[in-house]
């Protein structure tokens, strides 16, 4: 059995895999140093009757811990910091720039106990128009196009977790956070909730369905036509089909479940990790 990350089907996931792999090397190196050092002491020095007397306070002796600390600090930490910072600014925090890209797909994802309400702008590409349509816990995206999501929550804190896309973003009531990804492979992939959000947290799953561009266009056109008629009944049916036990309340999504602060849009939008 080999230990591996879930298959990466995104355009940017390699950045995260890369930093994890670099960390592996650092950890293997530091482990070997530690184990060999410790091992020699433990085997060789058990036979000694008398220890070598030193307080370790000479300049040369102090240099050993300091040099190793400096090595870890500058080489390992330094690399990780610079690398992660450049990945963030070059790509991961670039959701706002992606909005200007040709063929970008925009979705709003509203988390609630215990489902993901997903709103598409419809064929006109504008939200809050009559052809907006919704899906529940199924995110359909075209392959090879950036998808910019705006994430909010109508009750407690959830966390959108797309393991195959290396995406995790908290959904926080009262805030809307923006993020993006781009699918590179066709197929169905898991959506999970990563933040404990109540007793059915473990069932707050869903599916990312990556389809070809043509299929996406056809699907969107069809959904858009029916958008106005898509209401709670359909959502419930869809939920039953997806196999997750969802609690879909009547009147959704205009009057979202139980809480006063409802559908999270209409507030200022931040990019995930803040606006770059």
């Amino acid at each position: 059995m080999s230990i591996s990350l879930p298959s990466d089907v995104s355009s940017e996931g390699w950045r995260i895999d890369h930093i994890l792999h670099v960390t592996h090397w650092a950890v293997v190196l530091l482990s070997i140093i530690t184990l060999v050092w410790l091992g020699i002491s433990l085997v060789r020095d058990r036979k000694h009757r008398d220890a070598t007397f030193t307080h370790g306070t000479s300049r040369r002796e102090k240099a050993i811990p300091l040099a190793l600390a400096a090595f870890v600090f500058f080489c390992v930490d330094g690399y990780l910091l610079v690398r992660s910072h450049s990945d963030l600014s070059a790509s991961i925090l670039r959701a706002n720039d992606m909005l200007g890209k040709e063929g970008v797909v925009r979705v709003q994802i509203g988390a609630r106990q215990w489902a993901w309400d997903i709103r598409y702008p419809g064929a006109d590409d504008h939200f809050d128009t009559s052809d907006d349509f919704y899906t529940v816990s199924e995110l359909v995206v075209p392959v090879g196009r950036p998808v910019v999501f705006e994430l909010g929550s109508s009750d407690v804190i959830h966390s959108l977790y797309l393991p195959n896309f290396r995406i995790k973003q908290d959904a926080i009531p009262g805030r809307v956070l923006r993020g993006w990804f781009q699918a590179e492979k066709l197929g169905r992939f898991d959506i999970a909730c990563a933040q404990h959000c109540g007793v059915h947290h473990y069932q707050m799953g869903g599916t990312v369905r990556v389809v070809s561009e043509d299929e996406f266009a056809a699907w969107r056109a069809a959904m858009s036509r029916d958008g106005a008629r898509m209401h709670a009944e359909d959502a419930r049916a869809q939920a039953a089909e997806s196999g997750y036990q969802l609690v879909v309340e009547d009147g959704w999504p205009e009057a979202a479940p139980s809480r006063a602060w409802a559908w999270p849009w209409g507030r200022s939008v931040q990019s995930a990790g803040g606006a770059p």
Binding site: L5, I16, R83, S84, R166, I167
Partner: peptide, 11 residues
């Protein structure tokens, strides 16, 4: 520690 690695590892 690194923010990007934590995106995947968090929780």
């Amino acid at each position: 520690g690194p923010i990007t690695a934590d995106i995947y590892m968090h929780d």
